[in-house]
Write a protein that binds this DNA or RNA. Structure first.
Lengths: 119, 119, 119, 119
DNA sequence: GTGGTCTAGACCACC
DNA sequence: GTGGTCTAGACCACA
């Protein structure tokens, strides 16, 4: 796994986990990889993975059975979507629109990129 | 000047300088405030201002005349736009598209928000 | 470590690091001393070492793993040679040729010295 | 006049003056431009020019008639050649040879550059 | 433990 | 006056 330099790794792991859940790679109510497994897999200190899991536990996306491991919560999808959609609409989009205005770009330019990406 | 807590001050100064240049408050080929002046003005250590100026010098947005001060380069506007555009196209947009895919949103939803904003 | 007075210490550290790498004292992909270690060792403020390391990071000779340390990059040798060769060809040689012209020396004189040195 | 960034301007002026003398642009026993003239001409603070002239005065390459100006000394050429030749042979060449060895270059490479320059 | 940022304050060369 | 370097020492996030 490649990590971007300017974002804390544990946050990138949080995003990674969320992605796995949304893609149903990690299923609801199923056990997720242990911090050691995942740490070994993505070549990251288990402590760092733990920090990410704790973050997700706080958001009720994961929960923990002592001595067994972390599990994807029932409401994981709902919670993730709620958090992310809100964030996207209220924060990401306005910021993007501002940047576009500043750069003299309009939606057509964005559309081009969007289609390019899909093609 | 108010500083956000989670972003290094020197980076916020970089952004501030760029803003001043784009707004033509600091004109091309003109001297910008000395590190001590600006440091005093925004209540920041001169060294911190220096770090920001050095960053901008590296990007050829500012240049330096020994013993005299820092100046806005001729190509400052062009370079700023280039950097920002690049960042937007290569970093911001792909991230956004990713999020959209995960959230099940498409360009129509974005268009709606865009029009709402303008209206 | 002895520092020459007229050259900034951090640049002398840069040279020192480059030397260590070329001599394979500091091996490719291996961790280099932390800024505090090296700072303590050569009796220089860690900040000064940091500045040198940052310079080398910019040139892609060192890279950095968050919370772990600085490492010698894979291409370090190649990059060092490239930088040095370039410097020699584009800066040192032209200056030398100029001096020779002003002093009324030609390549024969230089050759003599060269052979003398080798013999 | 273009100044290299890493060498003090006054030293670059010293070199410039020496060059003018060697090229007989500034003749022996003739008055050289006043600090203001030269300063205006090459767009440099007169103080900086003065510092260069003082340097050259110390080396007996220029001398000063109070209220009149600076003049090229009789022995200017001899002194310059002596200083420079010595410097070149004892300092510049050995340094260059060392660099060549390090970079794996030999005199042939240098010859190529030399001919290229002349051609 | 690591790097990263920031401050206060010093001293320097240069203009 | 200007930038440039350096120190000592602090505090922080991250691993």
């Amino acid at each position: 796994m490649e990590f971007s330099k300017n974002i804390p790794i544990y946050l990138q792991i949080v995003d990674y986990v969320i992605e796995q859940i949304l893609l149903n790679e990690w299923q609801v109510e199923a056990r997720v990889p242990s911090v050691r497994e995942l740490g070994g897999h993505i070549e990251v200190n288990p402590n760092t993975v733990m920090r990410a899991y704790r973050d997700l536990e706080e958001k009720n996306i994961l929960y923990n059975k002592r001595g067994i491991g972390f599990f994807v919560s029932k409401e994981a999808h709902k919670l993730i979507m709620k958090i992310k959609k809100n964030q996207f609409m209220k924060e990401d989009l306005p910021v993007m629109f501002n940047k576009m205005a500043l750069l003299g770009l309009d939606m057509e330019d964005v559309m081009k990129m969007y289609k390019k990406r899909k093609g």
